[in-house]
Computed example of a mutant assay.
Amino acid sequence: MSLQHITFSASNSEPPAGLIVTLHGWGANAEDVASLLPFFRLPNYQFVFPNAPYPFPDSATGRAWYDLRMENMFQGLAESRQLLTDWLQSLESSTGVPLSRTILSGFSQGGAMTLDVGLQLPLAGLIVMSGYLHPEIATATKSSFPPTLIMHGRNDQVVPLQAALKARETVEALGVATEYHEFDMGHEISPEMLEVLRKFVVNVMK
C-alpha cells in the first residue's frame, strides 16, 4: 500500500535542487498544505504532499495519520509509521532525488510524524511546524541525524508551546543539530514561519 499524493515539479526545466515532502495535520489533507506552495518561494524544488492513510472521523475529506480521540489515542500509529517510512524510501525511484537531498516537513500531527520517522532516515533535514513528540519516540543512538528545524506559536491552544520545548530538549539530547523558533501566533502556518523554513532549506541544501 502506498500513499496517495500530489506532486509539483520544479518550475524550471532543470533537475530539482531537492525534494520537499510536507505532511498535513489531523483532519486536513494534501490539498490543504499544497495550497501553500506559492508561499514556500522555493521554485527550484520538487514538492510532494501525501495524504495520510486513514479517514478523519468528522469529515468526508479530512485524513489522519492515526486516531487522536481519547478512547482510541494513537491507534494506527505503528501502521502509519511503517507505511510512511516505506513510501519515503520509494521516492528516489519515482523522483530521481535521493533521501540525502530530501527534506521531510510537517504540521501538527504531520510534524509529530516528521520527528518520529525522519530521525530514523538519512534525510537532508526535518522541519516541524506546531508539532509534538510521540510518547515512544525512538532514542536509538545513531552516528548522525538530519538537522532539524522546530517552529511553534506561543499562543497555540491546540498543541501547547510546552510540546515544542520538550521536542527541542529531547532531540538536542540525542545530538540532533536543532534550530528553534517561536512566533506570536496560534496553531497555524504563518508567512513568517515559511520564511524561516525557506532559509533553513537553502542553508541545509548548500
Rank of each mutant, 00 (worst) to 15 (best):
G186W: 11
G76F: 03
V128H: 07
M193D: 11
E71C: 04
M129S: 15
E14P: 09
A112S: 02
S93V: 15
D32G: 01
L77C: 12
S94N: 02
S190C: 10
L19K: 14
Q82A: 15
L197H: 09
Q89R: 10
M70I: 12
L115A: 04
E31T: 10
S108E: 08
Q46Y: 07
A34Q: 00
K206G: 13
I189E: 00
L174R: 10
M205F: 03
A30L: 00
L91H: 02
N12W: 04
E179H: 12
S9C: 05
M151G: 05
G96V: 06
E136W: 09
V158Q: 01
D156V: 02
L19V: 06
A10R: 07
T95C: 03
L77D: 01
I6P: 04
L161M: 03
I6V: 13
L84T: 05
N203I: 12
A30C: 00
T178P: 05
S108L: 05
E169W: 08
E188C: 14
G96T: 05
P50Y: 03
Q109I: 00
Q89S: 11
G96L: 05
N44A: 09
N155C: 13
T139K: 14
R168F: 04
Q82I: 15
V201W: 01
W87G: 05
L99C: 07
M129E: 15
L165E: 14
T61I: 10
P38L: 07
R198I: 07
L91R: 00
V128T: 08
I20P: 04
L165V: 13
Q89A: 08
A64L: 08
T141G: 02
R63A: 02
G111V: 09
R168H: 08
K142L: 09
T61F: 10
Q4I: 12
T7N: 01
S11E: 11
L133V: 09
R81F: 10
T7V: 15
I127R: 09
E179M: 12
M193F: 10
R101G: 02
L83H: 11
G76Q: 08
A167N: 05
P146M: 14
G186A: 12
G106M: 14
R63W: 06
E14W: 09
V128M: 10
M185G: 11
V158M: 09
F183T: 01
L3V: 09
A140H: 14
L119K: 04
F49M: 02
M70S: 15
R81S: 11
K166D: 15
N44M: 12
A177F: 11
I103L: 12
L23V: 15
S105G: 05
E195C: 10
M113C: 03
G106C: 14
K166A: 15
F8N: 12
N155S: 14
T114P: 08
F39G: 08
D67W: 00
V117T: 01
I127D: 12
R41A: 02
L161A: 08
L104G: 08
N203Q: 10
A167T: 13
R63P: 07
H24V: 00
P43V: 02
G62F: 10
P43G: 07
W26T: 11
A78P: 06
L91F: 01
M205S: 01
A17Q: 13
S80A: 01
A78Y: 10
E71R: 06
H181A: 06
D116Q: 00
L104S: 04
T170S: 07
G25C: 00
